[in-house]
């Protein structure tokens, strides 16, 4: 099984937004944004995804990418 990748950095660059500003707009901590970016998240609430799309003015497909070749890692490995 591959992995879902969050292309937050790509969207931040496109919108010329800093991570801290995104954190404030969405209402999640920098640590949690880091967890999303590093692929360590186990689950994402639909409401969080909606807030990310609203803050970055994009569609979920712009943020999410499925990589079938990514190694299947458990957090902590």
């Amino acid at each position: 099984m591959g992995q879902i990748i969050f292309n937050i950095d790509v969207m931040l660059a496109k919108r010329k937004m800093k991570v801290m500003e995104l954190s404030d707009r969405v209402g999640i901590t920098m640590a949690n944004i880091s967890i999303l970016k590093n692929g360590k998240a186990k689950a994402v609430k639909v409401s969080t995804l909606a807030k990310l799309c609203e803050a970055l003015d994009c569609q979920p497909g712009d943020l999410l990418e499925y990589d079938p070749d990514a190694p299947d890692e458990e957090p902590g490995e």
Binding site: L36, K42, V44, P75
Partner: peptide, 8 residues
């Protein structure tokens, strides 16, 4: 707990 902690 881990599932909950890593649910954003």
């Amino acid at each position: 707990q881990q599932q909950s902690d890593l649910t954003i």
